[in-house]
């Protein structure tokens, strides 16, 4: 196992709105591994995931996930209501330069809905379409923010299967979630101990605090 891990994070601190929220985070995620992030609301899970996706710079520490390796899925699915299911997926397949969308449709059980416009889908169906987008990106690292919101139990199982297949294919996944996905092999990281301390207690300064420097 001389191959470097897909994601490795050391001493990472992230800030939201100019204030540090998390600090001192270390983890590595290798090929075929999944990491589940837990923590109370507002701890900074979304901020951490956006940092991993390259949407915002880390406040401190090192982050060795290439943004080109990451496929990010947020709360919003980025679907266009007037486009059909296949049009939505084909667009992302074209952007990422990957081929057929049929495996993704099948994996997320969307084949029967393929010609329906996205605005006529239910919330759970939309979510499944949003997750199918991950399959057409062809990228190894999935960074998922609450992927199971509005999914029913059967769809959660479907999703877990897709994640397992992705891991088996040499991918990796970082998932922030509150519910049990049934991915028992995945490591769980509770973010509560990494809550940033106030600067007076030796914590890291956000850009907001620099007015005090």
């Amino acid at each position: 196992m001389s191959e470097p891990p897909l994601v490795s994070v050391a001493g990472l601190a992230v800030a939201r709105g100019g204030l540090a929220v998390l600090e001192g985070i270390d983890f590595v995620v290798s090929r075929g591994a999944a990491l589940i992030l837990r923590g109370p609301n507002g701890i900074g899970k979304t901020t951490l995931l956006r940092t991993l996706a390259g949407l915002q710079p880390p406040l401190a520490g090192t982050l060795s996930a290439l943004p080109e390796a990451v496929a990010y899925a947020a709360h919003a699915d980025g679907l266009k209501a007037t486009l059909s299911v296949t049009e939505n997926l084909r667009f992302w397949a074209a952007v990422y330069g990957t081929g057929s969308i049929d495996p993704a449709l099948n994996a997320m059980n969307l084949s029967a809905l393929r010609d329906r416009p996205a605005h006529s889908l239910s919330a759970g169906q939309k979510r499944r379409l949003g997750l199918a987008r991950l399959l057409v990106t062809g990228r190894p690292v999935w960074v998922l923010d609450e992927p199971t919101v509005s999914l029913d139990a059967a769809s959660v199982a479907l999703f877990a299967t897709a994640v397992r297949a992705h891991l088996a294919g040499g991918g990796a996944a970082l998932i922030a979630t509150h519910i049990d996905l049934g991915l028992h092999e995945a490591r769980v990281l509770d973010l509560t101990p990494f809550r940033a301390r106030p600067p007076e207690a030796g914590g890291i300064r956000g850009s907001f605090d620099e007015a005090f420097a």
Binding site: A53, A73, A74, H75, L79, V95
Partner: peptide
């Protein structure tokens, strides 16, 4: 519109 439905985030992380 792209900002509201999250597409802009996804486009920013896309290969373009």
């Amino acid at each position: 519109l792209d900002y509201e439905d999250g597409s802009l985030d996804l486009l920013a992380t896309a290969p373009i």
